[in-house]
């Protein structure tokens, strides 16, 4: 039977691009954009995207009653977080005067602070920046260390444990832009908007075999 990839839809942003990019790299898989807990629970792989503010993301996750099923996927199957789908995995975000998040990864989410010595570093961090691969991972397959990916964000994650760290970027400060462990990979950048390297990453995810 064909594999299914569920894209978690909790009303935070347009998921068409993510779904189209996944279908593009995994034509044999069934990509389902869904708010249904049962669909997400039964999927072979789960993509957890998200755009917007931390407060709204958490509010929507609660109102869609998807916290448990997202946590279940996070512990049990190939799981790809994107942008806010990375940030809300953490314990706490500074955004919106402080928001408790899912707490699946120890650490917090911090806002960029403008640096008068680097006036050209505007906030949000928007555009193509280099990603240093600081840990080997199957999802980096065929992607050059230092490749450019497309970012749009004003907050960044700070994991407590260094072993979560799989990718770093320099902008105002050096920050973790990818976390990875076991079955989990989550990116601050948007692979679905990052041209060939982004598609390669999604391809690697869609074909990732857990060992």
């Amino acid at each position: 039977m064909a594999e299914t990839i569920a894209v978690v839809d909790y009303g935070m942003g347009n998921l068409r691009s993510v779904a189209k990019a996944l279908s593009h790299v995994a034509p044999k898989s069934t990509v389902q954009v869904s708010s249904e807990a049962s669909v997400i629970k039964n999927a072979d792989r789960v993509v957890f995207p998200g755009q917007g503010a931390a407060r709204d993301c958490m509010k929507h996750l609660r109102s869609y009653e998807l916290q448990d099923v997202v946590a279940d996927a996070f512990y049990n199957k190939p799981f790809l977080g994107i942008c806010m789908g990375l940030q809300v995995l953490f314990e706490h975000s500074e955004e919106n005067a402080g928001i408790p998040c899912l707490g699946l990864v120890q650490g917090d989410v911090r806002g960029f602070i403008k640096d008068p010595d680097r006036p050209h570093c505007k906030i949000p961090h928007m555009g193509w920046n280099n990603v240093q691969q600081v840990a080997a991972h199957p999802l980096w397959h065929n992607i050059a260390d230092g490749a450019h990916f497309y970012f749009v964000h004003s907050y960044y994650v700070a994991p407590e444990l260094a072993q979560w760290n799989a990718g770093e970027t320099d902008y105002l400060n050096r920050f973790t832009c990818v976390i990875a462990r076991d079955n989990v990979f989550a990116t601050q950048f948007h692979p679905e908007k990052s041209a060939d390297d982004g598609l390669q990453l999604l391809h690697n995810f869609a074909h990732w075999k857990l060992t």
Binding site: R16, S17, A21, H24, Y150, E192, K193, S194
Partner: peptide, 10 residues
């Protein structure tokens, strides 16, 4: 719609 389904840049 047509472009976004095939071109993966902003």
């Amino acid at each position: 719609e047509a472009v976004a389904a095939q071109v993966f840049i902003p």
